[in-house]
Write a protein that binds this DNA or RNA. Structure first.
Length: 263
DNA sequence: AAAGGATTCAACCGCCTTAGT
DNA sequence: CACTAAGGCGGTTGAATCCTT
C-alpha cells in the first residue's frame, strides 16, 4: 500500500497521513498508549508525535497493537461461537468479538464477510423440504445499542470496586456502560451493575442452553449442522466457566425481562 | 512464467450517541 | 435548546496476495 494518501486536518492545517502504518508509527503509538493509557484519542497524535487522525490511532491500537491480540486463523470453536453469536446478535461485531478472547471486531467482521456470509446466503437460497422447515425455529436477533452510563450516576463516581471486578475490557465495559438511555431506564431503577450482569448472564445462559438443545436436533441453529454439533457442545461447556461468556451488554429483550422482575 | 481474476484484510468513511458548553 | 467535539461502531474500499489458466 502506498503511503502518499494524505489529508489536511481542518484546523491545524497539518497534513495527516493515511494508509498503512509503518513500524516507526506503530512504535510511537504503542509507547504513547503505554505511557498515557487508552482513551483521549484526540490527544494521542499530538503526544505521540504522529501525523495521524485520532480515529486512525484508535483503530490501529485496537486492531493491531493492543496486547493479547491473537493473529492467525480462527479455530473451529471460535468459528462456531461466531456463528452462534451472529444468530443471536446480528452484525454486532464488537459484541461478538468481545466474547472471543484476542479477536477484534474487525477480525470477526472480515472473517464473516469472507468465509461465512456466502455460506449463510447459500443456506438461505436452498429450498427446504417440509420436514426441515418444521425443524427450524425463528431466532430473534438481539440488537443491543451502544451503551453509556451517565457519569452522574452515584455508583459511577470515584473508586468503584464494581468496576474492578472484571479483568476483561469488554466485561468492564458491560458493567460500566451497561445501561442505555434508549430504554428509558432511569438511574433510580438500577440497583447495581453486578446484579444486572448476573441477571443478564442468567438470561443469556438460557438462550445458549436453547442453542445447545438446537444442535442436538431440536431447533435449527447451525449453518452446516452436521459438523457443528460436537463443537457447539464444547463451546457450551466453556460457557459454564466463570467469567467466560455471559457478560453481554444489555438489549431491549433483556430489559423487558428485568422490568418484568421489577428490579 | 505471466496475466488476470478472486480473495483477504487493514484501513478509511460516515453515521450515531453522548457529554460538555 | 443548539452546537461542537469525541468515542465508537458497522459498512465499504482498495492494495496486497493468492490462485487459476
Amino acid at each position: 500500500m502506498e503511503y502518499k494518501r494524505m489529508k489536511h486536518a481542518s484546523k491545524t492545517g497539518l497534513v495527516l497521513r493515511k494508509g498503512a502504518w509503518t513500524a516507526e508509527e506503530d512504535m510511537l503509538l504503542k509507547n504513547c498508549v503505554e505511557k498515557y493509557g487508552e482513551g483521549k484519542w484526540h490527544l494521542v497524535p499530538l503526544k505521540a508525535g504522529l501525523r495521524r487522525c485520532r480515529k486512525s490511532c484508535r483503530l490501529r491500537w485496537l486492531n493491531y497493537l493492543r496486547p493479547n491480540i491473537k493473529r492467525g486463523d480462527l479455530e473451529e470453536d471460535e468459528i462456531d461461537l461466531i456463528l452462534r453469536l451472529h444468530r443471536l446478535l446480528g452484525n454486532r461485531w464488537s459484541l461478538i468479538a468481545g466474547r472471543i478472547p484476542g479477536r477484534t471486531a474487525n477480525d470477526v467482521k472480515n472473517f464473516w464477510n469472507t468465509h461465512l456470509r456466502s455460506r449463510a446466503k447459500q443456506q438461505k437460497k436452498e429450498p427446504h423440504d417440509a420436514k426441515s422447515s418444521e425443524d427450524h425455529t425463528m431466532v430473534t436477533i438481539i440488537k443491543p445499542r451502544p451503551q453509556t452510563f451517565s457519569k452522574t450516576l452515584n455508583w459511577f463516581k470515584g473508586d468503584n470496586e464494581i468496576m474492578e471486578t472484571h479483568d476483561d475490557r469488554n466485561l468492564r465495559r458491560s458493567s460500566i456502560e451497561g445501561v442505555d438511555n434508549n430504554y428509558n431506564m432511569s438511574p433510580g431503577l438500577i440497583s447495581s451493575p453486578v446484579i444486572l450482569d448476573d441477571k443478564i448472564n442468567e438470561f443469556l445462559k438460557e438462550l445458549f442452553d436453547e442453542g445447545e438443545k438446537a444442535v442436538n436436533g431440536e431447533i435449527g441453529w447451525s449453518f452446516d449442522g452436521s459438523q457443528m454439533e460436537r463443537k457447539a457442545l464444547n463451546v457450551a461447556e466453556q460457557e459454564n466457566d466463570e467469567n467466560s461468556l455471559f457478560d453481554f451488554p444489555t438489549d431491549e429483550v433483556i430489559w423487558n425481562l428485568l422490568d418484568s422482575e421489577q428490579l
